[in-house]
């Protein structure tokens, strides 16, 4: 589903990472661990296809791919519902309002659907951004620091979400500072000085 071959990235006069070889097959979970500033986010942006300055090869053989980075893609002047609708439309999907509301309710956002995203807290916005993972049937998920800023309940919801995605045969790449208990991690990639 996702394969990299001697992937290297040179930034600001140093190698951020060198010769990474990894592979994610369907139903597999890859966890990327590393301290701040070791290039986790850069790696994610390369995998998502947003960065083109790298050496080596990245192959994605998934039908579609969802990416959540540090910037959630939510316009602060649009409401929660409008933002989710728009992000779904960008993926070429137009879910009905019922489906949208059910998904938002699952993430505990039912009371905030008409609020502007600029008025929400960080954790709430993250949950809004995660709504499209619930709605979409993309094969590959790329979650960069998805578990930070979420409360206990939010983390549990996301974990179950990830688990069912993997059970359906989807691929998952995520990064976090620490290990996450209930989620079965198939592979671990450690970035930064060993």
């Amino acid at each position: 589903m996702l394969r990299s071959e001697s992937l290297s990235c040179f930034r600001q006069g140093r190698w951020l990472f060198e010769d990474l070889d990894f592979e994610v097959q369907s139903g597999e979970v890859l966890q990327i661990i590393g301290d701040n500033g070791v290039g986790k986010s850069t790696l994610f942006r390369i995998l998502a296809g947003l960065l083109e300055d790298y050496d080596g090869k990245v192959e994605i053989a998934a039908r579609s791919c969802l990416f959540l980075g540090h910037r959630y893609g939510l316009n602060p002047r649009l409401t929660v519902l409008e933002n989710v609708q728009f992000l779904m439309a960008l993926q070429g999907e137009v879910p009905s309002e019922d489906t949208l509301l059910t998904a938002l309710a699952k993430l505990g956002l039912l009371d905030e659907t008409q609020q502007r995203c600029g008025e929400l807290s960080e954790g709430q916005r993250k949950r809004v951004a995660l709504t499209r993972f619930l709605l979409s049937n993309a094969e590959l998920w790329l979650l960069d620091e998805a578990f930070s800023a979420l409360d206990h309940h939010g983390r549990q919801t996301l974990l179950t979400l990830c688990q069912s995605h993997v059970d359906r045969g989807g691929g998952l790449v995520f990064s976090s500072h620490q290990a996450l208990d209930p989620l079965m991690v198939d592979k671990t990639l450690r970035l930064g000085p060993a």
Binding site: A48, G49, L50, S64, C65, F67, G69, H70, R71, Y72, G73, L74, N75, P76, F86, L87, A89, L90, Q91, G92
Partner: peptide, 15 residues
């Protein structure tokens, strides 16, 4: 759009 990340999603989207 650039700052809130919408542009990234537009680039990655199918439209």
């Amino acid at each position: 759009d650039f700052e809130d990340g919408s542009l990234e999603q537009m680039v990655l989207g199918v439209a």
